[in-house]
Amino acid sequence: MKRINLDDVSQLQAHDAADMLGAIYKLPEQMELALDLMKRTAVSLDRSRVKTILITGLGGSAVGGDLLRTYVGDTCPVPILVNRGYTMPSYVGDDTWVIAISYSGNTEETLSAYEEAKARGAQLTAITSGGELAERARRDGVPLVSVPSGLQPRAAVGHLFVPLLSLVQKSGLVAERVEEMEETLQLLRDMRDELAPTAQTAHNLAKQIALRLHGKIPLIHSSTGLTEAIAYRWKTQINENAQTLAFAHSYPELNHNEIVGFDVPSELIERVEVIALSSTFDHPRVQKRISITMSEVLADARCGRSQLAARGESALAQMFSLLLIGDYASAYLAVLYGLDPTPVVKIEQLKKRLAD
């Protein structure tokens, strides 16, 4: 296989036929479009009845729910949960706000969960670019947020997260954080030029991470809370974009099990690359745990390891700074493996067989 030079933009373009790198670059514009859309979108909800918010979705469509949960979960007066499956938990009823989210509108698990939530009398909202979910929402008189189509669900995170955030803000359950959003958008605009294909590896953190992960098994660590969803996002982006295995775990739980597993077999441990995502919003004891684990506990482990600090001041900015780096790194890793980061052949194969 021809050796890949990440600083050769023509090589990147040759491998990125569907322009995943371009979609990543446009994340700030996605979020701005979504903000504009939600200014014209009303919320139809009896807030007094809401005891739980349940976001039901799969894959890239569910990521927005994870981000919402970790971003505002500590200030929202009711639990925010994410459901990934065909059925609804037993507690779902008329006091549950169920937000069904499917970028394509045809995710069979989400459609099944939607029908069960409707039968249980839950208050429903749908977010989709079209498909069957949009048709059912219109038929049933369910509030519908229609987002732009044409992307892979995992590349539409701005279109999917911002409507979720706006909905809970418009409901009055969570306060608006306008300044945090403004900071986040500006930070993403600044960072994308540092991480884009035209930025040379010597000054491009995402390319450097991709090179470090090449030929390795990525293990992404985070803190329970703000960066937890981001670590999982890194894992799934590496899975789908780079078509390779990756794993994620969080502090402090991993200090009670995983750290003991870095001894044998040595030939496997040598292929592991640990990246610990950190934020100033991490609990002080977790910050200490990360430091001790990375510098002392794993000092003799034969794996690679590094720590990546979030950028920005606000919680939202720090979340999305790490997300953007991970999205770019996963796409560059795909190119290093000689792959196009957009197609997900195995997922399409599975969907076809299920349809048959």
Results as ranks from 00 to 15, higher is better:
residue 138 R to G: 05
residue 151 L to I: 01
residue 111 L to G: 06
residue 168 V to I: 06
residue 116 E to G: 13
residue 151 L to E: 01
residue 125 T to M: 12
residue 121 G to R: 01
residue 126 A to P: 11
residue 125 T to G: 10
residue 179 E to R: 14
residue 113 A to C: 11
residue 131 G to L: 08
residue 168 V to A: 00
residue 144 L to G: 11
residue 114 Y to F: 15
residue 116 E to W: 15
residue 102 S to F: 11
residue 162 V to F: 13
residue 121 G to N: 02
residue 109 E to C: 14
residue 151 L to T: 02
residue 168 V to R: 00
residue 164 L to I: 02
residue 161 F to R: 07
residue 165 L to D: 02
residue 129 S to A: 05
residue 115 E to F: 14
residue 180 E to W: 13
residue 181 M to E: 02
residue 140 D to I: 09
residue 182 E to C: 14
residue 105 G to Q: 00
residue 130 G to R: 04
residue 134 A to P: 07
residue 170 K to A: 00
residue 118 K to D: 02
residue 120 R to D: 01
residue 159 H to S: 06
residue 125 T to W: 05
residue 125 T to I: 07
residue 172 G to R: 00
residue 121 G to P: 12
residue 105 G to W: 02
residue 111 L to A: 07
residue 145 V to W: 00
residue 128 T to L: 04
residue 117 A to G: 12
residue 138 R to I: 11
residue 165 L to F: 09
residue 112 S to V: 08
residue 140 D to M: 04
residue 163 P to A: 05
residue 130 G to D: 01
residue 116 E to R: 15
residue 152 Q to F: 06
residue 146 S to F: 06
residue 178 V to M: 08
residue 155 A to T: 08
residue 160 L to M: 08
residue 152 Q to Y: 09
residue 121 G to K: 10
residue 131 G to I: 07
residue 172 G to S: 05
residue 170 K to I: 00
residue 156 A to Y: 10
residue 131 G to S: 08
residue 152 Q to V: 10
residue 111 L to Y: 10
residue 132 E to W: 09
residue 157 V to T: 15
residue 180 E to D: 14
residue 140 D to C: 12
residue 124 L to N: 10
residue 129 S to D: 01
residue 163 P to C: 08
residue 132 E to Q: 15
residue 107 T to S: 12
residue 163 P to I: 07
residue 152 Q to D: 05
residue 143 P to Q: 09
residue 159 H to Q: 08
residue 130 G to L: 04
residue 153 P to T: 06
residue 107 T to Y: 10
residue 108 E to P: 14
residue 178 V to C: 09
residue 120 R to K: 09
residue 109 E to D: 14
residue 153 P to N: 07
residue 137 A to G: 14
residue 170 K to T: 01
residue 156 A to T: 14
residue 176 E to K: 15
residue 146 S to H: 11
residue 99 I to S: 02
residue 178 V to W: 13
residue 119 A to W: 07
residue 99 I to R: 04
residue 184 T to E: 02
residue 129 S to V: 05
residue 115 E to W: 14
residue 135 E to I: 14
residue 162 V to Y: 07
residue 149 S to C: 10
residue 136 R to Y: 11
residue 115 E to R: 15
residue 132 E to L: 14
residue 132 E to N: 15
residue 128 T to S: 14
residue 119 A to I: 07
residue 183 E to V: 11
residue 148 P to H: 05
residue 152 Q to E: 11
residue 151 L to R: 12
residue 123 Q to N: 01
residue 123 Q to Y: 03
residue 159 H to F: 14
residue 107 T to E: 03
residue 113 A to V: 03
residue 134 A to R: 13
residue 129 S to G: 08
residue 107 T to P: 12
residue 130 G to S: 05
residue 137 A to F: 11
residue 158 G to A: 09
residue 148 P to Y: 03
residue 167 L to I: 15
residue 113 A to H: 14
residue 109 E to K: 15
residue 99 I to Y: 03
residue 169 Q to L: 03
residue 174 V to F: 00
residue 152 Q to W: 03
residue 157 V to D: 05
residue 180 E to L: 09
residue 150 G to V: 12
residue 125 T to S: 07
residue 157 V to N: 12
residue 172 G to C: 06
residue 167 L to S: 00
residue 131 G to Y: 08
residue 161 F to L: 13
residue 135 E to S: 15
residue 116 E to A: 15
residue 100 A to N: 03
residue 153 P to D: 03
residue 112 S to W: 07
residue 118 K to F: 06
residue 113 A to W: 12
residue 177 R to N: 03
residue 101 I to Y: 01
residue 127 I to F: 02
